[in-house]
Design a protein around this nucleic acid. Structure first.
Lengths: 353, 353
DNA sequence: CTGTTAGCGCCTTCAG
DNA sequence: CTGAAGGCGCTAACAG
């Protein structure tokens, strides 16, 4: 593919060069079968030799589709590293999938609720249907106003990590999530199976959607097992190291200290481990601790942390896949729930009590 | 803004409704001053009432510009959490800046060198000039082939985090970086000022561009200070917890153990601290340790880690700003070097030797 | 100041 | 199977 000085090679140039009409070039470019072998070859050579590349805007205008998707990331906080850790593999999953399918990705990060109104959000996309579909990534609950707006776009949409949502009767996009509930319940059962009967839970900020699901999974599991009622064994850790640390100090003060603590994320588990170390409570001998997220360092803690690995990459991949299918084949969206995996490491063990 | 059933409201509709021509509508939309007050008002009302939104593709086609930028993320590894930590604030900085200026962001993540050739990369952008400018984000050295390709695009480009580069004589895009060199040198000096004379360095993977700069900063600082020649005080830690851990074990074996260790990132510092703990070397009493990146947990380690905070957000913001200025005003690109800040915490102290 | 009219580059009927 | 031609929605140069 030699380099060419001339700025823009157009379909017309190719047509002339190959001695055919622009219509034929178009057919070749779009892989429409109704083209004779030799003609197609001629055209392909012309394209190659001239270094022709179709103009995206012109295609979009003529076909009424852009082959572009918008990933809308809704976050309330300016930046939250632990959230990024989850969101980036999702982005990567989307990226990898759509690239294979000839789509392009636009992205917009928006601090909805912090200075931006629902009106601002996705202004980009409205600006002239510059996108064929919408992926919405957030760990927060989506309010009515936002839902109405998304629904108003009348564009295929997928929620990643939450939903499904409805707006005024009908669904607003499909949902691709991972199973927060089952994995926490399973974690509880494993601990129970190890002989633990006083199992505590450090929850995260309650307005985060994953947080409330994890909490109810814990509560349900506790109820099912007929163990101690959670009451004092429940603390708020705000998803931070600090929060986990303080929560653990609270638990340690109880006369009947928990023998296991499930944390709604790894950072809180790290805080809890730190507190346990300070309080001379050996982990896992006298206290089992579990986390959630499997962040990079969890493996290197002392002891290495038992935690949950979230299928973030697959979340993105599946979301993109569903969305593209819907766009191209009109397949009605179908909600998906991916499993999350427990990673057993050394921070959990049999109850020695 | 009432909702409208009709699919697409076009400029023509607005023109008819406001009883003007499409040209006038266009002028209003584009804020071209040559429109009479009353006329403008009429048009604006019509736009409002009909819910008109200009079609992006049509604008792009007519004006030959897309008001869209491409962020190209080049990474060799599939996913590297520590890299994400740095790249996401950059993305956020870009996002925030361009949104204010009416630009849209496309993103492409590419594993150059792992299955993808330079030919594949940025295929998106080539596909019809669907973008006005290019931001390139990577921590790796960029090879000649890639440079030639980027240069061939003949599109404004900015390198974030590396560069500046040249290709066959002339520069290929401007560069926005942060000052790896000075901050490591300064770290060395601070340690020297604290009385340390045996200062070791754990470097990262040498093909990462930041890594080699940090290394030479260390070497230069050591030479300037006339302290022990680095020789044995230099180890490779591959930017991982594991690597830092092993490197520290190596240092501990020396007859003249270093009294301070500078690590090229926080993960390695964590590994080093872990090793120190196992070896019963108190930090910071007998060993000062510093990191780089200021990742989320560094603040909560025992002791909290002295490290370097990278201006990632500003990197993105400045990159976007430079790029847009270049696109809109043709201002020649100007390389930028942002300062990085040392965050002094408890892992460093006077040399007690 | 405003209307008219060519395109922008490509797709897609409609003939042939 | 292929060429011709209208049109996607908007902008910009040119009249008036």
């Amino acid at each position: 593919m030699p380099s060419h000085k001339n700025r823009k090679v157009t379909q017309m140039d190719v047509a002339r060069y190959a001695e055919v009409s622009t219509g034929t070039v178009s057919r070749v470019v779009n892989n429409i079968p109704l083209v004779d072998g030799p003609t197609r070859t001629k055209v392909l050579r012309a394209i190659e030799e001239l270094g022709y590349i179709p103009n995206h805007a012109a295609q979009a205008l003529a076909q009424g589709r852009t082959k572009s998707l918008l990933l809308l990331i809704l976050d309330k906080q300016p930046i939250l590293p632990s959230t990024w850790q989850y969101e980036l593999p999702v982005l990567q999953g989307i990226n990898d999938y759509i690239k294979k399918h000839g789509y392009t990705l636009q992205i917009e990060i928006t601090n909805y609720g912090q200075g931006e109104t629902a009106e601002d959000v996705g202004d980009t996309i409205l600006r002239g249907r510059s996108v064929d579909g919408l992926l919405i990534l957030t760990s927060w609950e989506i309010d009515e106003e936002m839902l109405r707006k998304i629904h108003g776009y009348a564009i295929p949409a997928i929620f990643i990590g939450n939903g499904p949502y409805r707006c005024g009767g009908h669904p607003v996009g499909a949902s691709v999530r991972f199973d927060n509930y089952s994995v926490i319940r399973e974690t509880y059962r494993i601990l129970y199976g190890l002989g633990h009967r006083r199992i505590a839970f450090i929850k995260g900020s309650t307005d985060q959607i994953h947080s409330s699901i994890r909490l109810s999974a814990f509560l349900d599991a506790a109820a099912e097992s007929g163990t101690e009622l959670p009451g004092p064994y429940l603390a708020e850790g705000h998803y931070s190291v600090q929060g986990g640390y303080q929560a653990m100090y609270g638990f340690a003060r109880l006369t009947e200290r928990p023998t296991a603590v499930i944390c709604a994320n790894d950072l809180m588990a790290i805080g809890a481990m730190k507190a346990a170390a300070e309080l001379d409570i050996p982990v896992p001998r006298e206290l089992s601790i579990t986390g959630f997220d499997d962040i990079e360092i969890s493996e290197y803690l002392s002891p290495p942390l038992t935690t949950v690995r979230v299928p973030a990459y697959d979340l993105g991949k599946n979301g993109a896949s569903l969305l593209i299918r819907q766009i191209e084949q009109g397949t009605p969206p179908e909600d998906t729930l991916l499993p999350a995996a427990i990673v057993l490491r050394k921070s959990t063990d049999k109850n020695a009590g």
